[in-house]
């Protein structure tokens, strides 16, 4: 740990990131450009989130890292180890114990508190990018609040599929001003973005953007009066813990087409099982006896 500055980044870089975070909080949903650094991991592995986490961490923090809800996948494990080694912070997999949570594409099922900070890894921060590839144009569209194109895109979804088929990275409007990409979280998580007690920070390393949502901020998922936004999930219950209200992953379990639906939030699922809840897939204790 002594071979690196605290939390890997040098102090001047951290000051630059910190200034961007403050402006991001002052202008919720607006993407603040920042001079993203090369990190010792490839783009797409959360370099933006890692830089934001490095700028906010203190030695007393307890860090949790999740990848699609799971604490035990490669991305989550490697980032957790990275900060254990470079910042010497304690890590945890328990949502309730963490003070800083870095996440890839999920919001934990358990409601977050005012003592927590949620850091998102963002691949493409610009919600209009796939509709308009030129940065100069999308910047102008944000400044003029010209978001008609986004509604056309959602409308085309309806005309083609009969409903809004966008199921992740579902665009939101922040405080009635900026349209924002909530990162590729499932739209099931969208209702949690608004009025959250925790601070939410978004870091896009390759695209060099930072944006933020202060606590208790109004966040509205774009929709139409006759096609209201709907937070959807697989119409199943968790096979491991029996939860009916959590976001589910579909797992192929054998070569015969066998499928298992289970909580994507591993900590939520494990704590429910520890509390005695049981799904239909795990053998019951009587069956094992």
């Amino acid at each position: 740990m002594t071979d690196y500055n605290f939390a890997y980044l040098d102090e001047q870089t951290k000051r630059m990131i910190r200034r961007a975070i403050l402006k991001g909080l002052a202008i919720p949903g607006y993407q603040v450009p920042f001079a993203s650094r090369e990190m010792p991991m490839p783009y797409g592995w959360g370099t933006g989130g890692v830089q934001v986490s490095a700028a906010v961490l203190t030695p007393q923090d307890k860090l949790k890292v999740i990848d699609q809800g799971a604490d035990d996948t490669t991305n989550a494990v490697s980032i957790r180890t990275f900060f254990e080694r470079t910042a010497g912070v304690e890590t945890t997999t328990t949502t309730r114990e963490a003070t800083v949570i870095q996440t890839r594409h999920r919001i934990p099922e358990e409601p977050l508190t005012e003592d927590q900070i949620l850091v998102y890894q963002v691949p493409i921060p610009e919600p209009l990018r796939f509709l308009e590839p030129r940065e100069s144009e999308t910047r102008k569209m944000h400044s003029l609040e010209e978001y008609g194109l986004m509604h056309v895109k959602l409308y085309e979804d309806i005309s083609r599929h009969g409903h809004i088929a966008t199921s992740y990275a579902y665009p939101v409007k922040v405080e009635g001003r900026y349209v924002m990409d909530p990162s590729p979280i499932p739209k099931f998580d969208n209702p949690k973005l608004g009025d959250m007690a925790a601070i939410q920070l978004f870091g896009a390393g390759r695209e060099q953007r930072i944006y933020a949502l202060p606590p208790y901020t109004q966040v509205v998922s774009l929709d139409f009066e006759d096609h209201p936004f709907e937070a959807s999930k697989a119409d199943q219950i968790c096979g491991l813990c029996g939860a009916t209200d959590s976001y589910l992953d579909e797992v192929i379990v054998d070569d015969a087409g066998g499928r298992l639906f289970c909580c994507s939030d591993t900590d939520y699922c494990a704590s429910r099982r520890a509390a005695g809840h049981q799904g239909t897939v795990l053998p019951t204790s009587e069956a094992l006896a």
Partner: peptide
């Protein structure tokens, strides 16, 4: 500076 920044960030966020 990490501690000081957290104070400033908490203040700006709340």
């Amino acid at each position: 500076s990490a501690h000081a920044f957290r104070s400033v960030m908490e203040a700006m966020a709340r």
